[in-house]
């Protein structure tokens, strides 16, 4: 589904991703962990070209991202992304947040978009907030709307960039719950997170990144219980 080969990314002189090679299969849930500054978020952002790729190749569902002929907007529509800071559109209602890309990008009618949006809100348990503005929602509710908005595009892959890091602790569960449900439905997911419980329970594979490299890539149980590399051990000993 996703194939990353020799991916490199630099910001000026600073090389953030040094040589990333990862293969992610269909319906796989990959959890990316690592200390801050290790390049996890940058890696994720390269997967939908929110960050440009300096070197190497990334292909999603057979489409080469660095190919100049690729329609970036079409590709992005098929790769959903959820941000740490939610990034809901504050001037639109919850419903409009979800329908806007369906109408403008997928060119569906307003009625169809609204029906789809309401189904998605039902799914994330926020149908009663359809006409509210994002400002009036709690962090957990905002993030669930953001997930619904991304799902509205019917993506093949969902990317989560620390989706629970900006939340109060008691709201983390509701967001992880929605993500877990999504995983069970067979969505291909790449999740950057510090929620080790989620990684263990839902992840098919955990990638440990440090200083721009993938240090270790294993099934969650193996990685957490039997890390091979010193850096993985050091990181895990600090957070577990």
């Amino acid at each position: 589904m996703i194939s990353v080969k020799h991916l490199k990314k630099s910001f000026g002189d600073l090389e953030v991703l040094k040589d990333i090679n990862v293969d992610i299969g269909q319906k796989e849930v990959v959890v990316v962990i690592g200390p801050s500054g290790s390049g996890k978020s940058t890696f994720l952002r390269c997967l939908n070209l929110i960050e440009s790729i300096t070197n190497g190749t990334v292909s999603i569902d057979g489409v080469e991202l660095t190919d100049k002929k690729v329609d970036i907007n079409k590709l992005r529509a098929e790769v959903g992304m959820v941000f740490q800071q939610f990034n809901l559109f504050p001037h639109k209602t919850v419903l409009e947040n979800i329908t806007l890309p369906i109408v403008t990008v997928k060119k569906e009618s307003k009625q169809d978009a609204e029906k789809k949006a309401k189904d998605l809100l039902q799914k994330v348990g926020l149908l009663d907030k359809a006409d509210a503005y994002p400002e009036s929602l709690s962090g957990g509710q905002k993030q669930r709307v953001a997930i619904a908005r991304a799902l509205g595009m019917e993506p093949k892959v969902m990317l989560f960039d620390e989706p629970t890091s900006a939340l109060d602790p008691e709201m983390v569960g509701e967001v992880l719950g929605v993500m877990k449900q999504l995983a069970e439905e067979g969505m291909t997911m790449v999740v950057v997170t510090h929620e080790m419980g989620f990684a263990k329970e839902v992840g098919d594979c955990v990638i440990f990144m440090d200083e721009g490299y993938v240090v270790e890539e294993k099934e969650p149980k193996q990685l957490f219980e039997n890390p091979q590399h010193e850096r993985t051990k050091a990181f895990l000993s600090k957070i577990l």
Partner: peptide, 27 residues
Amino acid sequence: IDKGQAEAAHSLGMNKFQVMRHVLLPQ
């Protein structure tokens, strides 16, 4: 306007014009 607004809009597949028209300009 926070950079995340344009990023989110782009991540949904909106082109530059749509991002400007629907997300950045109204705000």
